[in-house]
């Protein structure tokens, strides 16, 4: 039904993704503006950024590169390279989540718990929700990878892969924004 639609402008699924991204942006805009408001009030407690977050930033940046490369390989029909790069992207995604988790644990061990309403508690929620979005991306990635490995029919449409990579770049850029935000606004 969808394929029958007029082939002009952006593919409907891609367009839907862009609107969804705007929606996700609004959620984090809500949270970061709440953070700014709270940080200007009394009893605001700052928190030290765990060093793991710097590593995870590098990891998610790398994964953006690999998925972009994977997309290019797909378009050039280099399917074995495409599969490899998608798998690497998935592994990097899992590594990112793991590093975030280690970072959270470090914070928790250093006395930043859910008690209070300072930067630490906001960080748990903001970075945690971002992590959930990455997890969602990993699930989608696993679906795409599984299709690439076991799919019987050959797909020439790059739309699903493009959607996947757009979303992945989005969670990457979102993290960069959040990370810089959390460092600057103390």
């Amino acid at each position: 039904m969808v394929l029958e639609g007029k082939k002009r402008g952006v593919h409907p699924h891609k367009f839907t993704l862009w609107v969804a991204l705007a929606s996700i942006v609004m959620m984090f805009a809500g949270l970061t503006s709440a953070y700014i408001v709270k940080s200007n009030q009394a009893n605001w407690e700052v928190v030290e950024t765990p060093v793991e977050f710097y590593y995870s930033t590098v990891v998610i940046l790398l994964s953006s590169l690999t998925i972009q490369w994977a997309l290019r390989s797909f378009k050039q029909r280099e399917m074995s390279r495409y599969r490899l790069l998608m798998a690497i992207t998935g592994v990097l995604g899992i590594a990112f989540i793991w590093l975030q988790w280690v970072g959270f644990n470090w914070m928790w061990d250093n006395g930043v718990t859910f008690q209070g309403s300072g930067a630490g508690q906001f960080l748990y929620i903001i970075a945690g929700l971002h992590g959930l979005h990455v997890l969602g991306g990993i699930v989608a990635l696993i679906v795409v990878i599984t299709r690439a490995f076991v799919g019987r029919t050959q797909s020439y449409s790059s739309v699903p892969v493009e959607i996947m990579s757009t979303y992945w770049h989005f969670v990457d850029v979102l993290w960069i924004y959040l990370f810089i935000f959390l460092i600057i606004v103390k």
Binding site: A22, S23, I24, M26, M27, F28, G30, L31, A34, I125
Partner: peptide, 14 residues
């Protein structure tokens, strides 16, 4: 809806 409901979701999560 798409631009305002997510903000309510943030509020509800907090």
């Amino acid at each position: 809806g798409v631009l305002s409901f997510p903000v309510l979701l943030s509020g509800a999560i907090l």
